[in-house]
């Protein structure tokens, strides 16, 4: 315990999937996130919590370079994935995104059949195996198979919100990623659907590394192994800049945090 406490942002004794080193993120000339240092362990669930505008989603989207789609955005610092610099010229973002899947805040199934929603990513990435098998396996892994096995030809949009989100998880799993990024995956869902997704996450972490952004502190404490708390502070120009306050085992963050801000936030005093 003592050795881990010495450097809580490092993940001693665990496989290190991502390492974020002194990373800042800018939209145009506005700094959105300042100087983040943390490491993401493999086969664990890491939660990012914090008030709005604290940059937790921005950091999440750095891991699969989805922020690249915003023309003015750029990064300073270094993020490595198994030791490889994510933002080096040699990295092809499309190949990276196959390895690092993502589930979004609002379910966003494609306007295609349930089957094609799952098969689409595999097709474009040149999957050579049996497609029916892959679709079934992915839908089983996302705990949706029994609900949709008789209507695979129906539109993905015909499902309920919770089912759509599990379809999106199946779609992400189908391209066999190593990491799944989840950006507030339950914020548009009812409590029962939320519970199903949370149960699913516990099953998925055996095979995948999961990073989840959530507004819901109970959710972070229920599902995650490690928690990073971000906060936002006002800048001189009137904007907000996010920074990492504290990153540790979830249990430590919620029961015995070092920083006052963290304590105030997890006890509901602000945010």
């Amino acid at each position: 315990m003592q050795s881990e406490q010495a450097s809580p942002t490092a993940v001693a004794g665990l496989e290190r999937v991502f390492k974020v080193e002194n990373t800042s993120y800018y939209y145009g000339s506005n700094m959105a996130v300042r100087g983040v240092n943390l490491e993401i362990p493999g086969n664990k669930i890491t939660a990012f919590i914090g008030p709005s505008g604290c940059g937790k989603s921005t950091v999440l989207r750095c891991f699969n370079r989805l922020n690249d789609l915003i023309p003015s955005a750029h990064i300073k610092g270094r993020i490595t994935y198994h030791g490889v610099d994510l933002y080096s010229k040699a990295v092809d973002p499309t190949e990276l995104r196959r390895r690092i899947g993502m589930v979004f805040q609002k379910p966003n199934p494609f306007p295609k059949s349930i089957y094609d929603n799952v098969a689409f990513g595999a097709r474009i990435n040149g999957y050579q195996g049996d497609m029916d098998e892959l679709v079934e396996k992915s839908l089983r892994s996302s705990a949706l198979w029994d609900e949709v096995k008789d209507k695979l030809k129906e539109s993905g949009l015909s499902l309920s919100g919770g089912q759509q989100q599990r379809l999106c998880i199946a779609r992400a799993i189908a391209v066999e990623p190593e990491v799944i990024l989840m950006d507030e995956p339950c914020s548009a869902l009812d409590p029962i659907s939320t519970l199903k997704i949370e149960d699913l996450m516990q099953q998925l972490k055996e095979n995948y590394t999961i990073i989840i952004v959530t507004h819901n502190m109970q959710q972070a404490s229920r599902v995650s192994d490690r928690t990073a708390f971000y906060n936002a502070e006002p800048t001189e120009s009137g904007g907000k800049v996010g920074y990492l306050v504290e990153y540790d085992e979830t249990q430590v963050i919620f029961s015995n945090p070092k920083e006052t801000y963290t304590r105030d936030y997890v006890s509901g005093r602000f945010g």
Partner: peptide, 14 residues
């Protein structure tokens, strides 16, 4: 919706 494009890019689509 932009979310559909993002969902597609996130699967490793060009």
């Amino acid at each position: 919706p932009q979310s559909l494009r993002q969902g597609c890019y996130a699967l490793g689509a060009t």
